[in-house]
Design a protein around this nucleic acid. Structure first.
Lengths: 239, 239
DNA sequence: GATTCTATCTTGTATATACAGGTTGTCAAA
DNA sequence: TTTGACAACCTGTATATACAAGATAGAATC
């Protein structure tokens, strides 16, 4: 885990900021001090601080130093790929996952388009509802390339698929693209979720890529309107 | 604009990827070749390539090289702060901005909470509707600290406020936090937008910070359900 | 022919150094 | 007291170098 020095510094400080043991606005040690403390060079420290800055943990001011940002208010993912399990654990609510489907199915034209498949063939399909405080709020529909995910146990589907993919199958996940939009509810939504009388639903389409840039997973996450929230942290890039 | 070498490289290649003059999957010159071409060091090239990678333009593979990613499909902001003007220009649709309000008003408790103001005082308020293809789709409500934005011309409000703030007032914008949620429509929404019969509306709350970490702007962007889309690019951070 | 080894290319990590330029406090001069 | 010069410290940019480690093609070996 701590193979790289700059990763170790990043992990140390991101943990401290998240746990609140460093308070908002507090000044970090200077780059030279950190270099001394970790017995490394200033450039290595700078790499860690740059990552912390990119991910919204700290803020650097030229001539002054690095300062802790307010992450308390960022309740949801600061950015990046965060799983339902991680989020719900952070929220500390009573959550439950109901697996409706978990098997190998022939791919429809729609799914082939999403997974950029040219030829017909099977895909692994998982349909799950997420129950929060007794209400089924989110419908997750996952599709995997059978090349990478030949099968999936019910246990893995009930817990965290990501954990299984990364730790057991050792799949090198690299990046993902999210699309958020609002669409009309389908009969399936009404059947599998506790929708009340909402006519629309928030759809988050997630395209997950491996390090070799192959698209291997497509996820459709359908959230009930009133329970949906998404938080994004963005830095201004000067032109 | 080209003060920094790495920024020049970044701008060169991000432009080439966006314009499509570099096609998806194409290999970039190696870091050493680029260093030679720009008469600079490999570390400087690496800084530029890292930025391109962070922003979803390219993908680096250890031992192989850097490859152009598919940005065509990422129709909306790849990430970061993108203004309505920039987006609409890219879409090439007929768009129009209607300014409903543009003046200095006393702050309400709600606004003080959003702008983290402790004491009562005036704020600069701008309310605008965005018309796309003849329909008023988006309602933008902007609130600025009068310390930084004492007044705003009708012309600046009609065009791009960001352009005015950054280029005329020279305000050093650093980062922003976005919150996306869905809420019930208000009477004001019904009055100022072409809402049809939608009962809900997508609300994007935008908190904009300066480099000294002061929150100076709060924007509420209210989108009609059927026209809302948000795209996010995220890289996996290993722990 | 199939396999292994190796040379060489690539990117990733780490170090040392230099100078530019923003920030702050001190101390002397006006 | 106020002002200005300056030193000390901070981050930002750039360069040179070294070695680790993944990828690949071709030579050597079995």
């Amino acid at each position: 885990m701590n193979k790289n020095i700059y990763m170790q510094i990043y992990n140390d400080y991101s943990a401290q900021v998240q746990s609140g043991s460093l308070s908002t606005g507090q000044k970090l040690p200077s780059e030279n001090e950190l270099a001394g403390a970790y017995r490394t060079s200033r450039e290595t420290v700078r790499k860690a601080l740059h990552m912390l800055s990119e991910n919204g943990y700290i803020h650097k001011i030229k001539g002054k130093g690095s300062f802790v940002l307010d992450t308390q208010r960022m309740s949801f993912p600061v950015s990046g790929l965060v799983t339902f399990k991680e989020v719900s654990e952070r929220l500390g609510r009573s959550v439950r996952t109901i697996v409706y489907e978990n098997d190998c199915v022939p791919s429809t034209a729609e799914i082939r388009r999403c997974l950029q498949l040219k030829e017909p063939g099977p895909v692994w399909k998982v349909v799950r509802a997420r129950e929060i405080e007794g209400e089924k709020i989110i419908l997750d529909k996952d599709y995997f390339l059978t090349t990478y995910v030949p099968s999936l146990s019910l246990e893995a589907a009930t817990n965290s698929i990501y954990e299984y993919l990364e730790q057991k199958l050792n799949l090198p996940i690299s990046y993902a693209k999210k699309e958020i939009s609002v669409e009309e509810v389908t009969p399936e939504d009404k059947l599998l979720l506790d929708l009340h009388d909402y006519q629309h639903i928030v759809v988050v389409r997630n395209y997950v890529y491996l390090v070799d840039t192959t698209l291997f997973q497509y996820t459709e996450s359908r959230h009930r309107l009133d329970k949906f929230q998404f938080v994004d942290f963005a830095r201004r890039v000067k032109n």
